[in-house]
Design a protein around this nucleic acid. Structure first.
Lengths: 200, 200, 200, 200
DNA sequence: GATGAATGAGGTTTCATTCAT
DNA sequence: TATGAATGAAACCTCATTCAT
């Protein structure tokens, strides 16, 4: 007799539970007992799959680090006008942050405890997103849509910085903000601040 | 006979040590033993001044929460042209972040553990900075320097978000960035993106 | 199709590995996991052959306890002169100890944990060796080669005690001793100390 | 109000209990909990005085390693005739072994786990006893009481080996032996085996 | 005001063993 | 016959905190 539903392996269940709890209570604030309970296994079982709590943490991080960058989005962006592209990017990015909230939480809280691992993630994901967007801006420079005297990399950083900041405010600090309006403000400022005007 | 040097009280020494260690290793990652050692007192002594580790944490946070907002800066900003004012604000803000790094570290790491306390700080400091700057933007709207269709509060948020993001990148993720150029890019974008143009 | 090589049964492989590890690290210092690994079987397999770790230990001991006593040697000794016989016995005994080092190690370390089992071995082997040798001494008394006022049993004990002591010193305490000279010193002392002189 | 009786410090009580239990059940067979209970302290307290179980073990060994050698006995031996001196030494040694049974037990059982520490003890104590006795034998050679062709060091080893062996048999293997007769047999054999005879 | 001594509660991890196949 | 998966019990050790001085 075979049970088809709930086919998640024990290992996956542990990883999931760990991700959830680490992000809610931090690495030290989460006990292996809690993780085991959440995953519905005995505490020992956890150590059959992961050599230690620390190893489990690293694995949780690794399991999260394969995020979509913007790469696949760029071709579509090139078909839109600049404003629309910015708006699309912003929405995509904020949605991504929302979806990967747990990872973000962990990155922010454990930065000082596992700097190596966290920085690697940052490079792989955040950094990569910025880099790809910077390329897009460079492309727009050549096509005459964006000012030439803007440093694409720092501009890219600034754009996502604004958006990240909004995300922090809403999700971390639980401020009641109008997400759409906030995003539009960012888009507008960035659009007006970077687009090439006639006679420039 | 009076000893003049090293007049810091025992309590202050404990608070200082705690701030330093909490910011480096997090709340749970720091032991009362370590704090005591760093402060050069016996571990028990710590409990004479603070009822518990948690109470010490709160006190550390409180002791850090009296930060200058922008309030005193505004009058000076009003005397400068808009671009210069933005630049001044940016530099002031980044310097402030740098100076209060420890507090920032703690806020980011302990957000989920002590949401109440942290949020209060956020309100008191970050939020306040944004609010004051928003007022300045409103002032510039009335004087015709800033576009009217920009939401001052979100714009304010966006501006400091960009800058905060640069700070994170440099100080947390230890990226080698050209701080001045990065800041200028932000200032330029925001300036161009918000300033009122003729015939608008 | 028959595989001829490596015909050791699984059970034997487990026993061998257990002997080796128990003697190197003690009973508690050896894990069933290690034994299984050394024997190249899964940990569970071990429990198919032995009801428990303790049972395995007992079986290891039992498997080792069929040692040659001196019985077969005695006829030959009787054909030698007394001095030569002592020398032969000494060398035979030291070689035996060396060969059964693992068992000795276990007996010394686990004496207090499994007194019953260990003592039984002692009786079966050591004791038996002493007894047989005592008989030989008694035989020499009747033939007028050994003093009559010597207690054969205690003398026997003393003789093997000296030799065992040398073994301990060399193999356990890793002292650099000249084995041959040490043995000869023992033989000489015992010979001179027990042989019957004229007019005695 | 001062309590005079039972002035043993907590640390000493822990050391004592540890010695007792380690010698009865081995290092791994003894739990820190048991030691604490035996010493009438909380388990944690043990860790205030000793950094780890291993450290406690080492300290136990160290605390036991200052044993009397034979040094003080030698002058008295020189005043006795050789036979009496041997007898005195034998009794003294067996009594010492009995008194330090715990240490002996530990040395035998943990030899393989802590070879360094144990060997050091062996050098300091056992070895030293043998050395001092060898010097005594050398002295007797010059005074013409002991044969010159006997290696004093190995003879010394052999003598204590016989005695140690008796001790093992009685105390470890719990054999019912007549201690006095056993000792006398040893003494007699060694005496007759080493004393210089006329015309030799 | 300051501290050495002592501890209860709890954390991670290991171990021998059982279950189901 | 052999084993991968799972576990209860318990080990060592740490932490924040109290007591008595």
């Amino acid at each position: 007799m075979l049970v088809i539903t709930d086919m998640k392996t024990t290992k996956d269940r542990i990883l999931e539970s760990a991700l959830k709890l680490f992000s809610q209570k931090g690495y030290l604030g989460t006990t292996t007992k809690e993780i085991a309970k959440e995953a519905n296994v005995a505490e020992v079982t956890l150590f059959r799959y992961f050599t230690s709590k620390e190893n489990l943490f690293i694995e949780v991080i690794k399991s999260q680090s394969f995020l979509p960058t913007l790469k696949d989005l760029i071709p579509k962006l090139k078909e839109m006008d600049y404003y629309k592209a910015l708006e699309t990017t912003a929405k995509y990015y904020v949605k991504l942050l929302k979806k990967k909230q747990n990872l973000i939480h962990i990155m922010l809280s454990e930065m000082f405890k596992y700097p190596e691992e966290i920085r690697e993630i940052h490079n792989k994901i955040i950094q990569e997103v910025h880099r790809v967007f910077a390329e897009y801006l460079d492309y727009l420079k050549t096509s005459g849509n964006v000012k030439n005297d803007i440093n694409s990399v720092y501009a890219s950083s600034a754009y996502f910085g604004m958006l990240f900041s909004i995300f922090l405010k809403k999700e971390l600090f639980k401020k009641a903000i109008n997400l759409n309006e906030a995003i539009h403000t960012c888009v507008k400022i960035f659009y007006e601040g970077t687009k090439k005007r006639e006679f420039e």
